[in-house]
Design a protein around this nucleic acid. Structure first.
Lengths: 242, 242
DNA sequence: ACCTGAACACCGTTCAAGT
DNA sequence: ACCTGAACACCGTTCAAGT
């Protein structure tokens, strides 16, 4: 049972017409699928209620009979994309969290363009669900976190799960990508090597492979080793505080 | 020397007229200040080029003589808000990173509404600057990270710096905040206590104090203990990998 | 050099009307 | 029950024209 905010409106009683598939009629799921498809194919810049409608061959306003708002569509997209993140029960708590974090990143890699939607609005947070929360609390309790420290550790885990990956898959400018890339490269080329010696020495392994110093996101330039270290950092850091 | 993408256009030669203050004329800095003010006062939903113009008493298009795009304004806002994050030199590497993370959060707490702007676009990443990057590399080198592991650790630090805080200050829905809060509370009230016993047992210390289970963001409901633990997690986790 | 003003191609959402 | 169609109050940005 997830905290979906969709399907609350219209609040008038509504018979379960149960035509969620087959008939080709407009439904909540067909809308959400079309929206996710649109984002995958054309990027977040082209994600709009009007473009969803266009993809479905209906008037923009038709969507509002099935779904209360754009925010609700976003929440539902996140729910769909982040299904089945929970690791299997047999893992110990360290491996359980490792797997959780990797599952999250794998889900984002399937739909990288949705990354900027996650975490920026409380509304979209709500599409995560109880089984996941319970699972996290369960493993943290096993690890030894109690009471207020359990709540704190829970927040650490959520932040750890989404943070690196969301940053890795930040939006690249859809227009003038070339110009943007040049701007960064020129900035790096003009670097004062005496003022910033470490940056200058390691520029080869930082350029386009490190936050702030890249012009492509995780789709073209994945930050695998950084992600691996981040996962270990969070897990070993939690362990160190027991 | 920061990687600002502002002031590139118009690329025609342009005399330094040096009337950045005093005269009351429109300038890049007056535009950025007005934009940041607008966001602070009225929230991100009301942040638009047109509303900046309205606040300055000019036509929307006047802004485009001083600034190339909305993205450029965003990048500049971030640069202004994230000034002076660097800790003092005398701290050892552990305390240096602790202070860096706290400085970042303090900066966001001064302008909480800009949090959703940070990290979602590569463009806005670029407003961070070389002194900070060099400082981070410096402390990581001191700690003992070398070569490829230095680059990975750098990415861990950047992600660690922004992640928890950005999530903590995610946007609350500007409209129908009351309805949104009720939706969450109803979801929690209807919780299956047998299926999710840990969640049920600790709901008192999770409700509105934990990601996914809150209806207010860090402005009204700061996650202090979670943040403290997150900082220690990242730092001790890095230390554990040396 | 700097701003006005019209214009273009978009948005999300409401509401009345059709079937 | 479900969709059309018009309408409202917005967007970012370009470009010609004024001063």
């Amino acid at each position: 049972m997830s905290l979906s905010i969709i399907g609350r409106r219209p609040p008038r009683k509504r018979q379960k017409t149960n035509k969620d598939e087959g008939t080709g009629g407009l439904t909540k799921t067909s809308i959400v699928n079309a929206a996710l498809d649109l984002i995958d194919r054309e990027g977040l810049d082209n994600f709009s209620m009007r473009n969803i409608a266009k993809a479905l061959g209906v008037y923009p306003t038709a969507i509002y009979w099935h779904v209360p708002s754009r925010n609700a569509v976003v929440a539902e997209i996140i729910t769909v994309a982040l299904q089945d993140l929970l690791p299997t029960e047999d893992l110990d708590w360290l491996d359980w969290f490792r797997t959780l974090f990797r599952n999250y990143r794998a889900a984002i890699r399937r739909h990288p363009n949705i990354a900027p939607l996650i975490g920026v609005q409380l509304v979209s947070n709500a599409s995560l669900d109880f089984p996941m929360i319970e699972g996290i609390l369960n493993r943290l309790t096993q690890a030894g976190f109690r009471d207020d420290r359990l709540a704190a550790a829970y927040n650490v885990v959520i932040a750890g799960m989404v943070s690196f990956t969301n940053l890795e898959y930040a939006m690249t400018p859809s227009e003038d990508a070339q110009q943007w890339r040049d701007t960064i490269k020129v900035g790096i080329a003009g670097l004062d090597r005496e003022a910033y010696p470490l940056l200058a020495r390691h520029i080869g392994r930082l350029e386009n492979k490190a936050f702030i110093l890249r012009w492509e996101n995780g789709v073209e330039a994945p930050l695998d080793s950084g992600f691996d270290m981040f996962v270990e950092t969070v897990i070993l850091g939690l362990k160190a505080q027991l």
